[in-house]
Design a protein around this nucleic acid. Structure first.
Length: 505
RNA sequence: CGGGAUGUGGCGCAGCUUGGUAGCGCGCUUCGCUGGGGGUGAAGAGGUCGCAGGUUCGAAUCCUGUCAUCCCGACCA
């Protein structure tokens, strides 16, 4: 087993299968009996809780409040905004009955439960909550004094996807959805951008994932939105993942749902609304962005355990002293903080092989592993292993020194991950001005990375190119738009708009 | 919804062509040896073979139906 990786296959051999095995190896989640739905296990849910609590604080500090709306949406609500309805129609689960009746099969004698009590008006299990929250907003908003209305909801939603994958695309998933209503378009657009930036900061600071911030083209926009802003991440197979979106709805939804108010001139006006969300897909993105052939690699700030201490007890007579020493170290560490939160430390004193324990924590992606054995105890040292470094690397440092530099070790881990991901993305993103080079690029390999091109094509032209090469415009990056004008790669028209193309999840 | 495949102990599979009521690996339990490493020896626990019919003295094996899942397409956070 000496040189074997913990995860089979490796990323190069079979990336999608590697992804599944990382999740299994880290014991994060599993497929459930319910079609397309996953069971999120404590290690995976722990990551989600950390994501949640940090985001929640960011939402609150930008003036938002949490509320909760029903899981079931009256079917009629979904019919109000045509584009929106159409966008989600094919993936809606529908509730049509409200009672079960026991029915005995006369031949087998077995009892079956049969749906009964048909509803006159069916309900849709929310695929997203614009409509039902909009209905509430319509009641809540009467005057310009009621605005802005800044609401967030933490919830589960359901989209009957054809091809589910753990975390990345499941029929039921957890997310937050922000919904806001504003007096003016400008204010609503500002809100959309504020959240866009909030997401980008969050991904960089918590998940160590660099993103490209940009706007979606009309073809890729949220159904019913006037503008969709996105943060796009590149993962290790060079595909793109849309990690979070923030939509400006204009007055589309407020007109459809009558979210109106009396303005400062005593005139009736329709509000301008926004919505924005990130989901458990962030965990999938996180896995694909950082993990290696030995399993999950967690950025410290979302690691349910940041430091795991493993006692090495080869001799019975020193065993208790070592365990005591480990517990003492854990206690000291736990009283320290990292980015405002208590360090999350765990002593693994289970009675089992040390090697097995070590590999479990490697596969779970714990940022720092500490081992303390008889020799370390004697020399007041600890054996430190960092998850962002090769698994077999270890350094023996003074215990006191370790206590002084834990935080910087954790920060350094975060920094390494962020730099690696940034480097990967930069190396796999090229500018392209020639249509022939553009077309060749997509057939050169399965996932050849991203291309940035001058773009002035129509929606139809975009869709044709997308279909032909199985790509999409990930976004019109905000940063690139100021750069020099150039002829569109397809039409030749001189433009200052640049499009970022890639294959995506 | 179109094309392909599969359903056998917790997981991964063999057995099915040539019917005779289950077997392997991993995991799990107990005990021993090990102990800076995912080691090792022994002994155990655990399945009426997706479901429903049919053929047969007898079906995991043959036939029919049905359900579910997976892979390739169209859709998608």
């Amino acid at each position: 087993m000496a040189d074997k990786n913990a995860i089979t296959p490796t990323r190069n051999e079979d990336f999608p299968e590697w992804y599944q095995q990382v999740i299994r190896g880290a014991d994060m989640a599993e497929n459930s009996e319910t079609r397309g739905c996953m069971v999120i296990k404590p290690w995976g849910y722990g990551i989600w809780e950390l994501i949640q609590s940090d985001l929640d604080a960011r939402f609150k500090s930008t003036g938002h409040e949490n509320a909760y709306f029903p899981l079931l949406i009256p079917l009629a609500y979904l019919e109000k905004e045509a584009e929106h309805a159409e966008g989600f129609a094919t993936e809606c689960a529908v509730v049509t009955h409200h009672r079960l009746e026991a029915e005995k099969d006369p031949e087998t004698g077995k009892t079956k439960m049969v749906p009964a009590g048909k509803l006159t008006e069916p309900y849709v299990i929310r695929p997203t909550s614009e409509t039902i929250i909009g209905a509430a907003f319509a009641r809540w908003v009467e005057s310009y004094r009621d605005l802005p209305l800044l609401i967030n909801q933490w919830a589960n939603v359901m989209r009957w996807e054809m091809r589910p994958r753990l975390f990345l695309r499941t029929a039921e998933f957890l997310w937050q959805e922000g919904h806001t209503a504003h007096e003016t378009a400008t204010e609503a657009v500002t809100e959309t951008s504020t959240i866009h930036q909030l997401y980008a900061d969050f991904l960089r600071d918590m998940l160590a994932i660099p993103v490209v911030m940009g706007e979606k083209t009309e073809a890729e926009r949220f159904p019913g939105a006037e503008m969709t802003l996105t943060v796009e991440a590149m993962v290790q197979d060079k595909k793109a993942i849309q990690a979070g979106t923030s939509h400006f709805m204009g007055q589309n939804f407020s007109k459809a749902q009558d979210i109106s108010f009396v303005d400062r001139e005593n005139q009736k006006q329709f509000a301008y609304t926004t919505s924005w969300g990130v989901s458990t897909r962030l965990i999938g993105t996180l896995i694909m962005a950082h993990s290696d052939d030995d399993g999950l690699v967690l950025p410290p700030r979302v690691a349910p355990k940041q430091i795991v201490i493993i006692p090495v007890t080869p001799k019975e007579d020193t065993r208790q002293a070592i365990i005591d020493s480990c517990n003492a170290l854990a206690e000291t560490l736990s009283s320290q903080t990292f980015h405002g939160q208590k360090l999350r430390v765990h002593v693994d004193d289970r009675d089992m092989g040390g090697g097995q324990k070590k590999w479990e924590w490697v596969k779970k992606g714990v940022p720092l592993r500490i081992e303390i054995g008889p020799r370390d105890l004697e020399g007041q040292k600890v054996c430190l292993q960092r998850r962002d470094q090769p698994v077999r690397d270890k350094s023996f440092i003074d215990r006191e020194e370790f206590l002084r530099e834990v935080q910087s070790q954790l920060d350094a881990t975060h920094q390494t991950l962020l730099e690696r991901a940034t480097k990967l993305r930069e190396e796999a993103t090229e500018q392209c001005h020639e249509l022939s080079a553009f077309e060749n690029h997509w057939s050169s390999q399965e996932n050849p990375g991203w291309l940035l091109t001058p773009w002035a094509g129509s929606r139809e032209q975009e869709e044709e190119l997308s279909k032909k090469h199985k790509i999409s415009i990930r976004c019109i990056p905000l940063q690139e738009q100021e750069e020099a004008t150039a002829p569109c790669i397809l039409t030749g028209e001189v433009t200052n708009q640049w499009a970022l193309w890639g294959r995506s999840y």
